[in-house]
Structure formats: C-alpha cells, structure tokens
Design a protein around this nucleic acid. Structure first.
Lengths: 194, 194
DNA sequence: ACGATACCAGACAGATCTGTCTACTCTCGT
DNA sequence: ACGAGAGTAGACAGATCTGTCTGGTATCGT
C-alpha cells in the first residue's frame, strides 16, 4: 500500500468524479437542463457505473445537494474562524457570503435553485430543509453568543438578510446586496442587544 | 358589434387561454418540467395555434413572465392604495407580500424561479432585469416619500428584505419571513429618517 | 496465478420533448 | 354568398432523456 494511495490516489473513484461533475454542471446550468450523458462525459465514467453507484438521477441529485450542504458548512465555519469578537462573527457571515458571491461561478443558493425546478416533496426538499435548519441553528448560536436578548428573533432576521443577499447577488450582478445586508445586520444587532 | 363582445367575450382568445394555462403550469411546476403538450391540453388549444401565436416555447415563456411582471405591478400598486401615510406605504409592501405568500399556490418569485432553471442571457433574464428595475424604482419612490435621507440606500435595503422574505415564504412553509421583514423595515426606516 | 470487484464503451428500449405539417371547421366582414 | 382568417385535431420527424443490458478490461487481495 503506497503512500500515494492514502493521500493522493492517482485517480479519484468513479463516485467522486461523478459527484464533482454533477456539482459543476448542476450548479452552473440547473438540474433539468443537464442530462445524464453530460455528467458521465465530464466525469469520464461509464453510464453503468453511475447507475450502479447511485441508482437513479434523483439520488445523484440528492448526493449533489448533500455535498453542497457540507460545502456550506465548511465554508461558513472556516470563514468565521478568523473572527474572535462574537459580534464580528455575526457580521462575518455576510462577509463570507460577499466573498463567495464575488467568485466567477456564483449562481446563488443551490438549494433554492433546485427547489425552483423540481416538484416539492422529493429528496430536494429534504436536503433543503436540513440545510436551512442547520443554517438557522448557526444563526441562533451566533446571536446568542453576541448577546442578543432574543436569539431566535435575531436569527429569523439574519435568515431574511442572508436569503435576500444571496438572491441579490445572483440576480443583480454585480451586486452590493451582501454588503448592504451586512450593514443592516449591524443595525439590527445593535437594536437586539441594546 | 354586441356589448358582450366588448366586455365578456364568450370564449377568451386562444392567446389568452394559452397564457393563462402557461401561467398556472409554469409557475406551479417550473418551466422545464412542463411540456408544450400539457400547456395546450389545459388551454384547450391546438398546437399549431400556439406556434402561430408565439413562435416558440421560449417566446411563450417570455410572455408568461411579462404577464407576471404586470401582475406584480398591479398587485403591489393596488395593495398600496389603502395606505395613506408614506411610512405605512413602505411597510405595506411587506404586508402585501405576506398576504400573497399566504395564498395556496404561492411558490416564490416567478422571475427568480425561472432564472434558476435557465441559462443566463435569454428572454428570462431580460424580463427579470426589467422587473427588478421596476421594483427597485418603486422602493426608491416610497423611500423618498417617507422622508429617507438617502432614498437609494433605503431602497437597496428594502430590496434585500423583499427578496429575503420571498425566499423564506417559499422555502419554509409556513413562514414568518414577511412579518419579520416588515418589522426589520420599520427599524431601518426609523434609522433612515432620523 | 486467479477470481472478485470495479470500471469502461456503447448499443438499445421506451418515453417525452419541441416544432412542422396537413386537412378540416367555424365565424365574420363585405 | 363567399373568401379570409383563426382555430382544431392529430400525425409526424428528429432530437434527447432516463435507465438497462451486454461484453470486455484492468486492478487487487489472496
């Protein structure tokens, strides 16, 4: 067993390549517009491998969104590490979002985008609900640490700001929405801790 | 020329029935998932009529979104008529949104949903841009009437709130997002006119 | 060396999609 | 009365989609 096989496998598994290809294509172009053939072509994988690994396109979509969920978690948590003051950590959420929105491939919230295409009730809604619940939980925690008198109320407000900034960043490019949201958060944070 | 033909034509034109069917189906289920056949079936119209009237599905989509643009305009303007105080008119935006979000068929912003499905650059983006520009113009006007020191800055904030409330109302049903946004708007309005 | 496992290439089936075309009917304005 | 315009029903073409299946190849643990 070589060291390379532990740290840098020459070739990622079919599953990983599939997931990477699905992430790029689904996020950039939408789920319905991207066919299975495009995914396997980009991944360099046989169609049979996709179906033996995931079973269906729906399950591939679920895995794609679960990966996005993980991505949001790590990005937010890592991005917030640089702030120490609890108030700065609240506002830092919008700075992280602002940086993300400035990257070339940004196309808004993957979960909202997926929800906009599909019928409700499927895997998409499940993962979206889970992600929104996690995000709200983070906001409650940050609000509490910042000394909000009603952390849940402030978390609701931060959720509105986060969603609004995300929409603005997607629809009006370039957009100042994340910075605007940050300033709004500051005002509301002051009001919530007064 | 009978009076009926002016006010209550026995049967709406093929174009109108097509538009009504497209609006219901596209908004409820998304654009890509709904095929032409479903639209003409619901409209009770021949396929040839669709293509002779609109030319392509893309143009039907544009017409659908233009109808949605008109709908937003009239709903907002009508809904705001009941308020006299300029400050109430600003907050009234969120009350109108709240009422709309409570209706059964609510599925969020038609323009954002359409943008989430399609590739950028097409008719969808054009109409979306126009609608967002109109909406922002309305917010600037309301902000100015309410005595905001910087109406454009307040309009940017209101836009974030409006988008965020709309997302929340779609993703977390039932959602308090519109009411939360209204309260936030009140705080920000106070700060902007102090 | 060898069998299991993972993977690849691509044909194929069956459904569905957009868009075209033919041929018939109905309703008006003149 | 009659021709034009608008609409209807539905077959059809060609592309594309998901999902299945066959058959071959490479890698790896034992």
């Amino acid at each position: 067993m070589s060291a390379a096989s532990l740290t840098t496998p020459r070739k990622p598994s079919a599953r990983d390549r599939l997931l990477a290809a699905a992430d790029e294509l689904f996020y950039a172009e939408g789920i319905h517009t991207v066919g299975i053939d495009r995914v396997i072509e980009r991944a360099g994988v046989a169609k049979a491998s996709l179906y033996s690994t995931f079973g269906s396109k729906d399950e591939l979509v679920r895995a794609y969104l679960e990966g996005r969920h993980e991505l949001r978690r790590t990005r937010l948590l890592k991005g917030l590490e640089r702030y120490e003051d609890p108030r700065d950590r609240v506002l830092g959420v919008f700075e992280v979002l602002d940086e993300l929105a400035g990257t070339p491939g940004f196309r808004g919230c993957a979960f909202y985008n997926a929800s906009a295409e599909g019928t409700p009730g499927g895997p998409v809604q499940e993962v979206s609900d889970a992600t929104r619940a996690w995000t709200r939980g983070l906001f409650v925690e940050l609000a509490r640490d910042a000394g909000a008198k009603d952390p849940h109320a402030l978390a609701d407000q931060l959720t509105v700001l986060y969603d609004g900034a995300s929409v603005g960043a997607k629809m009006d490019r370039p957009s100042m929405a994340p910075q605007v949201a940050r300033d709004m958060a500051e005002i509301l944070l002051n009001a919530a801790t007064a």
